[in-house]
Nucleic acid binder design. Structure first.
Ligand SMILES: [Zn+2]
Ligand SMILES: [Zn+2]
Ligand SMILES: [Zn+2]
Ligand SMILES: [Zn+2]
Lengths: 136, 136
DNA sequence: GCAATTATGTAATTGTATAACGTATATCAA
DNA sequence: TTGATATACGTTATACAATTACATAATTGC
């Protein structure tokens, strides 16, 4: 049986550039912000960014935040092994945290199943204030 | 102390029209789909829809689904009393369900708090197959 | 009436994402 | 070597989503 984890191939040039932009940022970037940052490297059109992002998300290197229409580099080593990740998005500093909690995942699965819903993909995004910003 | 629940005033004409479109639909509608449906009633511009949607969401009569950029009428009588609602979105029939489970809400609050995150607003959206579609 | 607030109409613009082309390159089998 | 397949890339145009800016009308509270 195939391992469901994506065996990550070497990144292409465009994929590397987009990954680099996201890795350097300490907050989510929109596709168009990435495009602007990479114009000096030859990027001209949104599709170049979106195609790279599609692959990077597929590889599990990047997450998409639905509530921001933005993308963030994964900082969570064990990410691919988790079914459900909760993202914490600080509205003060923009930083994104990743929480993977088994009991939370089980709870979500359970409440869904109780209504007969078969969940395939879940989005959990929390907006608020991170610890660092709250301390200020 | 003011009640945080919105005392719902009568809806204006535009708000009623948008609410009607969403109430009739059995799946989420995008703002532009609503606009098209209401052209016969004098709607000409997206802003007329977005302004009505803003109010309806504020009143708790409509929910916005982040992962779809779409809006759905609330089918959940006790909705406003719940801090956290999980939406189930069927990828087969499009129907949206609302789950409010106290233990899930507590769990989410708890895992966030463990990382020092102060959550203000949460988005929980599950995509998959609903019971009816699974039975087919 | 009058001021303040809320709702509406319209046009223009900005932001997000994809469709539809064509081209280039790597891989593999015949 | 050729042909088939798969993948990546570049470009243009277009579709879809949301907001800004400004003017006008209706409503509400004195
Ligand atoms: Zn991750
Ligand atoms: Zn912060
Ligand atoms: Zn509801
Ligand atoms: Zn269904």
């Amino acid at each position: 049986m195939e391992n469901s984890l994506q065996a990550r191939p070497d990144l292409t040039k465009n994929q590397s550039l987009v990954m680099g932009a996201l890795a350097q940022a300490n907050a989510p970037l929109s596709a168009y912000t990435i495009l602007d940052q990479l114009r000096d490297h030859g990027f001209r059109a949104p599709l170049q960014v979106y195609r790279a992002l599609d692959k990077l998300v597929e590889f599990g290197l990047v997450h998409r935040l639905e509530c921001l229409n933005a993308f963030v580099a994964c900082r969570h080593p064990e990410c691919e092994a988790q079914e459900i990740i909760a993202f914490t998005i600080c509205e003060a500093c923009g930083q994104v945290g990743e929480i993977s909690d088994d009991s939370l995942a089980r709870r979500i699965k359970k409440v869904a199943k109780e209504t007969g819903f078969q969940s395939k993909k879940s989005t959990v995004e929390l907006r608020g204030i991170c610890q660092a910003c709250h301390a200020i």
